[in-house]
Amino acid sequence: MTTQEITPTDDFGIAEASRTNLWKDAFARLAANKLAVIGIIPIVLLFFIAIFGPYLTPYDFLAQDFTARLAAPSSEHWLGTDELGRDVFSRILYGARTAVAVGLVSTAISLIVGLIMGSLAGYLGGRVDMLVVWLTDMTRSMPALLLAIVINLTLKVPLEAWMEQMYLATKNGFFRQTMWVDLVLVFGALALIQWPGYARLIRGQILSIRSRNYVLAARALGMPTGRILTRYVIPNAMGPLIVAVSAGLGGAMVLESAFSFLGVGVQLPIPSWGKMISDGLRMWQTHPYLLAGPAVMMAIITVSFAWLGDGLNDALNPRQWGG
């Protein structure tokens, strides 16, 4: 047999085999999963709104119309107005920004911390491993909301005082925006709550994959360590991680809402869904749409991320693929 003969003559030739990699196969699997595809639509919409929201909204999110306070949903105000006469629909669209920012940034921070701690624990083992496991246990033993409240209460005032001092010293306008303190605290609290989950997952994955036979077999074939990591360890560790991140994105958004509800969330000029829910809750018996809008949005996004995560799990696990 020569190389000539195996040049592909159709879509299923051997050259195709080299191009058909895991990701391509996984994508095909994902596309065939109805729930996952349904889940992707709201998520794509969410990101789209987060980026272009300000250009789509019929009203400015701060514009107050005192003639139409607490108006019921109508053709003018699709989801009604709140007690200051602000358009709820516009505020929800703006709120997507907060949700996406919170989800992405806090997940990214906790993922990076989790990756570093988890890989160190998995690879080095011994004392490092014990320390990391102890740290994750400590963090996880504390109730998440309590932790967030404690962080907010203890750090907010000193941080703001420090910012004020820096402003007086440097006259730099940046230090006047206390919004940054909020962001740092909320992202920090979310990351602190979430990193142990990622760290444990990654540690477990590395421990289990490192001792798999195919890693030994690859080493016995003389494959270099870097290649074993990229071709054997990481792809096999990816599935659960992607699923966890997908669920974590939704989870972070819900957590942020809980923070806002308790008054320790993002106090941005831009509305947050959690803040809207907590504001709307006070009047839910008389004006349920104030609560319903952001709450339904939140539910849709959370469920979408869960469905997408499930779909990704199935798509990324070739062992579950039928012949």
């Binding site: 990699n21 895991l22 054997y232």
Partner: peptide
């Protein structure tokens, strides 16, 4: 144990080709 000696994430061709390339 041949059941676990192959990387489940890479097709047989790519897997077999690696040592030859390397």
């Amino acid at each position: 144990d041949p059941m676990t000696s192959l990387n489940p994430f890479i097709n047989i061709g790519t897997q077999m080709a690696e040592p030859l390339i390397y």
